[in-house]
Amino acid sequence: MNPVTTHAQSTEREDRLWLVRHGETDWSKSGRHTSTTDLPLTAEGEQVAASLKERLAAEQFDLVLTSPMQRARRTAELAGFPDAEVDEDLVEWNYGDYEGITTAEIRETVPGWTVWKDPVPNGETPAQVATRLNRVIAKIAAVDGDVLVFAHSHALRALTARWLELNVTEGRHFVLGTATVSVLGWERGSPAIHRWNC
């Protein structure tokens, strides 16, 4: 059974899922694919991440999750959530042999390549990403209240697709900048986007 469908059974749900992409790193700044490489935030990334604290201060969260990677954990800490629960399923899409290189570089040998539709040698498939993000959604579904998640660009975009009951590859439509806040929720019983990339 789709965990999203289970979560949507109550048509009166008002709880929300808040998504925060980690702050800037050297590799996110230069467009290099970053999954397993555990990079710190840049000085600017730390500054912008700290500005999230004021933006989130008025909200109440019943669960706060973070990817185990330091760029996500540090963003959570600077945003005022040093005790965020680490969830291994929130790691970034594993880019395998494409780790540390840009899309433009990949396309020199694989024209038109994107992570959403093309193989990632020695990395994750969309089905593998969907499996672990479905576990995240199941955990969120068990919480009666708002949930805040700190993670990564492709992982959060894929998570959004699963929240909306779409194939994980539909995450390609949801562009996400560093240190941005997005909010998912419900519209008359259907999963919906309330705010995106703010």
Results as ranks from 00 to 15, higher is better:
D15S: 05
L39H: 09
Q60G: 03
I137L: 15
V175N: 12
A58G: 13
E99A: 02
D118I: 00
R135I: 04
K53L: 13
G177F: 07
V20R: 09
V181F: 01
T66V: 03
R135G: 11
H22C: 11
L164M: 11
V183K: 11
F150H: 10
D97E: 08
R132W: 08
A155I: 01
E44H: 05
D15Q: 07
L159P: 15
N134L: 06
F174K: 00
A104D: 10
G145S: 07
N197F: 08
G189M: 12
L156V: 00
P111G: 06
V129C: 11
P3I: 01
A161G: 07
A142I: 01
T178S: 14
L176W: 15
T11E: 15
A104W: 03
R71W: 15
L184N: 03
T25K: 07
P40R: 03
A50N: 12
A58C: 09
S190I: 01
G112Y: 04
P121A: 10
G145Y: 09
A130W: 05
T109P: 14
E54M: 05
G123I: 00
S28Q: 11
M1R: 10
L90C: 13
R162A: 14
A155G: 11
N167A: 02
A127I: 03
W93H: 08
E54C: 04
L17G: 06
V183A: 13
K117R: 04
T180W: 05
L52F: 08
R107C: 04
W27I: 00
R16F: 05
E44D: 09
P126H: 07
T180V: 03
E14L: 03
W186R: 03
E14N: 04
T125A: 12
T125C: 13
A179T: 05
F81I: 00
L39K: 07
E105Y: 04
T75R: 08
A151S: 14
T103P: 13
T11R: 12
A49V: 01
T34P: 11
R157G: 02
S67D: 14
L19W: 12
V175A: 12
V168A: 08
T75N: 11
Y98V: 00
L52T: 05
A76C: 06
L156D: 01
F81M: 02
T75K: 08
E105F: 02
E99F: 04
E105A: 06
N122A: 09
A142Q: 09
G189D: 15
I137D: 06
R71D: 15
T103V: 05
E85I: 01
V136G: 02
L133H: 01
I140C: 13
R73C: 10
T75E: 15
T178Y: 12
T102Y: 14
I193V: 14
T169K: 12
A57W: 02
D38R: 03
I137C: 02
T75A: 08
K139P: 13
G112R: 04
D15K: 02
S30H: 07
E105Q: 10
N167T: 00
V120G: 09
R21F: 10
K139Q: 15
K139W: 11
S51F: 02
E124Q: 09
T114C: 15
Y95E: 12
T180F: 08
Y98G: 04
P121W: 13
P3G: 04
A158F: 04
Q47Y: 12
G45P: 01
V120I: 05
T25W: 03
A79H: 08
V147F: 09
T125L: 14
W186S: 07
L63M: 14
E105I: 00
D38H: 05
G96P: 03
A158R: 01
T131K: 10
